[in-house]
């Protein structure tokens, strides 16, 4: 287990370093189109070949990693905090507040988000730089992703509310805020951590799909999502295995994070 953790840590550090140092490592700009060699196979010049427009896949992967690795966890954190706060408050308060918040959460879950997102896009200006556009997308995802987790948190908190340790904390003179922060939040940590880790890959993929609504990453900026979107149509990929590099990187990164974090808890 220890070696696993070490390997995962080294891997994460390498990915992070490579994405931060993309400006120096990347053999070409992510936007540069080598128009004389589109769809090229890997070569010394293009380590992962080139895409349909002749852009260096390796460089795009590096820059895409930077965008996604920064923004997806930020959005996941945001939705987790919202889920914890809203679900926690509702479950803790109980009574009619819980009923109202649960109803609101259900309503939120049943809203047709596609149309709301389209409306959001309609309200946004067209002339935004690609980076801002990606950032807006992740903020939106963060704002929308909390509801399902909030219900779980709410149910958990409700059970904690009637537990002995909360009763004892009250008997020790603890007030509401202290109960929430010192007693409930630590117990919610596993649920919230799970929500956080589930959200990251989900957000990365959702960001890719949002491209269809004109939200999300804009040309020519790459993100893991936009790189993964190239895998959508099923054609003879077995002949071009290097196209799976972004998927492999995503899977490895997310699982490495989990290995590191899991061990942290056990070791702690």
């Amino acid at each position: 287990m220890k070696t696993m953790r070490a390997v995962a840590l080294v891997f994460l550090a390498a990915v992070l370093a490579a994405s931060i140092a993309a400006n120096w490592i990347a053999p070409a700009s992510y936007a540069r189109q080598f128009r004389d060699q589109p769809d090229a196979a890997p070569s010394a010049q293009h380590l992962l070949g080139t895409d349909d427009l002749g852009r260096d896949r390796f460089s795009r992967l590096l820059y895409g990693t930077r965008i996604s690795l920064l923004l997806a966890p930020a959005a996941a954190l945001m939705s987790t905090v919202l889920a914890g706060a809203i679900g926690g408050a509702a479950g803790f308060a109980g009574g009619w507040i819980e009923v109202c918040v649960t109803a609101a959460t259900d309503l939120f879950l049943s809203l047709p988000w596609l149309f709301l997102l389209i409306t959001v896009r309609a309200c946004l200006p067209l002339n935004v730089s690609p980076v801002v556009s990606v950032a807006i997308t992740f903020v939106l995802l963060g704002c929308l992703g909390w509801a399902a987790a909030a219900r779980v948190v709410c149910a958990d908190v409700r059970s904690f509310r009637n537990s002995d340790f909360v009763l004892l904390a009250r008997a020790s003179g603890a007030g509401g805020a202290r109960l929430l922060m010192r007693h409930l939040v630590p117990n919610l940590a596993p649920v919230l951590a799970a929500q956080f880790w589930i959200s990251i890959p989900v957000f990365i993929l959702t960001e890719a799909n949002l491209g269809i609504l004109g939200l999300g990453v804009a040309e020519p900026l790459p993100s893991w999502g936009s790189l993964l979107r190239e895998l959508e149509s099923f054609s003879a990929y077995s002949a071009q295995p290097w196209l799976f590099a972004p998927l492999l990187l995503l899977v490895l990164t997310v699982s490495s994070f989990q290995i590191v974090l899991h061990n942290e808890e056990v070791a702690g």
Binding site: S163, L167, L168, G173
Partner: peptide, 18 residues
């Protein structure tokens, strides 16, 4: 509570925050 009147509960493991 806790300062002038304190409480000890029946099941010690569930009364401590796990």
């Amino acid at each position: 509570r806790g300062r002038d009147i304190a409480l000890v509960l029946q099941s010690p493991l569930s009364a401590l925050n796990p």
